Computed example of a mutant assay.
Amino acid sequence: MGPENNTQISEFMLLGISQDPRLQSFIFGLFLSMYLVTVLGNLLIILTTISDSHLHTPMYFFLSILSFVDICFTSTTVPKMLVNIQTQSKIIRYAGCITQMLFFILFSGLDIFLLTVMAYDRFVAICHPLHYTVIMNPQLCVLLVLVSWLVNVVHSILQSLMVLQLSFCTELEIPHFFCDLYQVIHHACSDTFLNEVVIYFAAVLLACCPFAGILYSYFRIISSICAISSPQGKYKAFSTCASHLSVVSLYYCTGLGVYLSSSSMEKSHSTARASVMYSVVTPMLNPFIYTLRNKDIKRALKRLFQIKIIKGPVVLRLKKDP
Rank of each mutant, 00 (worst) to 15 (best):
G2R: 10
G2W: 05
G2P: 13
Q8Y: 09
S18N: 08
S18Y: 01
P21Y: 05
F28P: 09
F31W: 07
L36Y: 03
V37K: 10
P58I: 03
F62C: 07
S64M: 12
C72H: 03
S75E: 06
T76C: 14
T77P: 03
K80R: 12
V83A: 07
N84V: 01
Q86T: 05
G96P: 06
R122K: 10
F123V: 07
V124S: 05
A125E: 11
I135N: 13
V142N: 08
V142T: 09
S148F: 07
V153R: 02
M162E: 06
V163N: 01
T170D: 12
E173M: 08
I185E: 03
H186A: 15
S190V: 02
D191R: 04
T192W: 04
F201T: 11
A203W: 02
A207S: 10
C208V: 13
C209Q: 07
P210C: 02
G213H: 04
S223C: 10
S229F: 05
K234Y: 05
K236A: 09
H244V: 04
L245V: 02
L245I: 01
S246K: 01
S249P: 01
C253Q: 10
G257L: 11
L260D: 06
S264Y: 03
H269K: 06
T271Y: 12
V276H: 01
M277H: 10
L301Q: 12
L318A: 12
L318M: 11
D321M: 08
